[in-house]
């Protein structure tokens, strides 16, 4: 039993963190928000680092890594509020497509994703729009139980505006055909939802930590009553409380990435939604009126957390799912069951 990442996993995480600190600093995020929101140059560098191929099987030219490796990278993407389509693609779309990599047409999509030649967007039928549908070459969409892999040319997009100035969302109109069916296995969309929830949770962790870090830095330097405001218990205790929530969300996210069990996924999702909302509320409070402005970077992180909290099952969806798992007539509870197989 070892609930820890390997040195290699942590080293890769640090490499990505350093890269994003240099290439996706808050000033660059702000710049992207003022423009069209996407940096092709930065995306190319993500490809060069192997990030688009992170979860693509080695046979299709990827690194063949799993969700435990991925979750650390998704967390860093959240920490930097990375605007480009990466997390959804490598954490939701690619793990799904990889199950069908024995089909030549799917294998070629995976190969193109790894090299950065193609992008795949994915939207759960429960959500009213698809993130980054506009820049995608392929879309993974649903009709009933069926999961379809649809070329961009076959869909009509209606761009919507997100409350996050950096999210690109669109409603998608399309006609389902037999030639686009990836699978019609019942329950597959539930499994995809779990992948989506893990992706959102991992990013949320990074977003929450970024907001606390910004606020802690501000509290160390901003002076009132002749002292840094962080020296006042009323302020420092706020941030300590959020850090507790973040740490207690971190373990469930890592566990969910490892087990991919619905109950672990929902737990992680709820813990992160709460921690990120608390981080946003508290960080704004610590920044005072500055935190309410567009001129301080905080709001970019806060709005991303706000947007991500609603998709791939919001808090109430996951809490309801969890309650059913715990309270159903055949749910195994009690000393032997609750911690069984972790």
């Amino acid at each position: 039993m070892n609930f820890a990442f390997t040195e290699d996993q942590l080293l890769f995480r640090d490499t990505v963190r350093d890269f994003l600190a240099a290439e996706c600093a808050p000033a660059q995020v702000r710049e992207a928000a003022a423009g069209d929101g996407r940096s092709p140059a930065r995306f190319d560098k993500l490809v060069e680092m192997g990030l688009t191929g992170l979860t693509v099987p080695e046979a299709q030219g990827g690194l063949g890594l799993g969700l435990v490796d991925y979750v650390l990278i998704a967390e860093e993407a959240g920490r930097a509020a990375l605007p480009e389509l990466l997390v959804d693609q490598i954490g939701i779309a690619v793990p799904l497509l990889s199950r069908f990599a024995d089909r030549p047409e799917v294998a070629s999509v995976l190969e193109a994703v790894a090299t950065g030649a193609a992008k795949v967007a994915i939207g759960h039928p429960m959500d009213p729009f698809v993130a980054d549908a506009a820049g995608a070459d392929w879309l993974i969409l649903g009709k009933g139980d069926a999961v379809h892999l649809v070329p961009a040319a076959s869909v009509a997009l209606t761009a919507e505006t997100s409350v996050d100035p950096l999210r690109r969302i669109a409603g998608v109109e399309w006609l389902a055909g037999n030639d686009t069916v990836l699978s019609d296995a019942p329950g597959l969309w539930d499994e995809i939802l779990d992948l989506g929830a893990i992706a959102m949770a991992a990013q949320g962790l990074g977003l929450a930590q970024a907001m606390v870090d910004l606020a802690a830095e501000y509290a160390r330097t901003r002076q009132q009553f002749g002292k840094p405001i962080g020296s006042f218990q009323a302020v420092k205790h706020h941030l300590a409380t959020v850090q507790v929530a973040i740490e207690f969300a971190r373990a469930p996210v890592y566990k969910a990435a490892f087990t991919q069990r619905p109950r672990d996924v929902s737990h992680a999702r709820i813990a992160v939604i709460d921690a990120a909302a608390m981080a946003a509320r508290t960080a704004i409070q610590v920044f005072g009126a500055m935190g309410y402005t567009y001129e301080v970077d905080l709001h970019f992180f806060m709005k991303r957390a706000w947007a991500l909290a609603g998709v791939w099952g919001d808090r109430h969806y996951h809490l309801d799912r969890m309650a059913r798992m715990v309270l159903s007539d055949d749910a195994a509870i009690g000393a032997d069951a609750t911690f069984a197989d972790n």
Binding site: M126, V163, H316
Partner: peptide
């Protein structure tokens, strides 16, 4: 916050056209 939680996924959609912030 309650207002946003009541709206669910719809809470993300702003009414203006892309590029605006209404």
């Amino acid at each position: 916050k309650l207002a946003m939680d009541v709206l669910g996924p719809e809470a993300e959609i702003a009414p203006g056209s892309p590029g605006t912030y209404d």
